[in-house]
């Protein structure tokens, strides 16, 4: 089982300029890019390992539609949290689709408790071969949950990964950023908690039939207290660094230029070629900036 932990969040909350109060509307909740990447990695790994994906979420029922979308992608789903009570405004209740409070669940803002609840929910479905998280949640998250989760599950951890690929069943090669533009490559052969950056992969869309099938279907919902279990014993897992060096993107072979030395030099440097030099056009008003952008696109043939 590959477990993927998600926390759907309103990615564009309103912030009061004066008070700093954050107002979220969980109808707009979506997976942050990092969690979408984690889910896509989870699905790919499960396909290659012949396993299955468990999506674990700590939040309110407002996230259910998104969880059903994950279910339509073939994942099992468990949510830890309580159903939100409809907000009763001065003019009456807004109903189940009305605005919800900021916190997606009782545990929001408490990474240790969130991790404990998620760990319990995951264990309730079996022992994970791998746990994937986003490197940070979309709300006020600081990226602490994966580390707490590793401690709860007794697994090794590798956080902030920029790429994850399989090398046979049960074996992964992952890469993460280090300070100073360095990258570290690790080989992972045992159960581990990984957190990934929101880059490199794009979450697939669920098929129509699967979406229709999963719409309205019930799934496992647990209370935060009921899902907590004692921290697990450390699991011996293979995780070792195979390389640590400055990041150097692979070179891209291009055909060698032809002609005499002068022509080859011009081709290699781009000198004297017809091009539009970079220029500073600001500061501009919004309207002027829009004009500038549109004119640029028109010149480049994008709007014709």
């Amino acid at each position: 089982m590959v477990a993927v932990c998600v926390a759907p969040t309103d990615l564009r909350p309103e912030v009061d300029d004066l008070t700093g109060t954050v107002r979220s509307d969980l109808r707009r909740a979506d997976l942050p890019a990092a969690e979408a990447a984690a889910l896509e990695y989870g699905l790919r790994i499960a396909e290659e390992w012949g396993g299955w994906v468990l999506v674990a979420c700590c939040g309110s029922a407002a996230a259910d539609d998104l969880l059903r979308e994950a279910r339509a992608l073939g994942a099992e789903v468990v949510r830890v949290g309580t159903a939100p009570s409809p907000t009763a405004g001065p003019l009456g209740p807004l109903g189940p689709l009305g605005p919800h409070p900021v916190a997606p669940g009782d545990l929001a803002g408490h990474p240790a408790a969130t991790a404990a609840a998620l760990a319990g929910a995951i264990r309730g479905h079996g022992q994970p071969a791998l746990v994937l998280c986003g490197d940070r949640s979309g709300g006020a998250g600081v990226g602490a949950v994966p580390a707490f989760l590793a401690a709860e599950l007794g697994l090794g951890q590798s956080l902030g990964l920029v790429s994850v690929r399989t090398e046979g069943v049960g074996r992964l090669v992952v890469e993460r950023r280090l300070d100073g533009g360095w990258r570290e490559r690790l080989a992972i052969t045992g159960p581990a908690v990984l957190s990934v950056e929101g880059a490199g992969v794009r979450l697939r869309r669920a098929g129509l039939d699967a979406v229709l099938e999963s719409a309205g279907a019930p799934f496992d919902v647990r209370s935060p207290n009921g899902s907590q279990t004692p921290p697990g014993e450390p699991v011996a897992g293979g995780m070792h660094t195979s390389a640590s060096r400055p990041y150097r993107p692979r070179t891209r072979p291009v055909p060698a230029p032809t002609g005499d030395a002068h022509e080859r030099l011009l081709a290699l440097t781009g000198a004297l070629s017809d091009r539009e030099p970079a220029r500073v056009v600001g500061p501009l008003t919004a309207a002027e900036a829009a004009d500038e952008l549109l004119a640029y696109l028109a010149r480049r043939g994008y709007t014709t």
Binding site: R27, G95, P96, G98, P99
Partner: peptide
Amino acid sequence: ADFDSWLAQ
């Protein structure tokens, strides 16, 4: 956003 959701519900 509220009204249309309510009616659809």
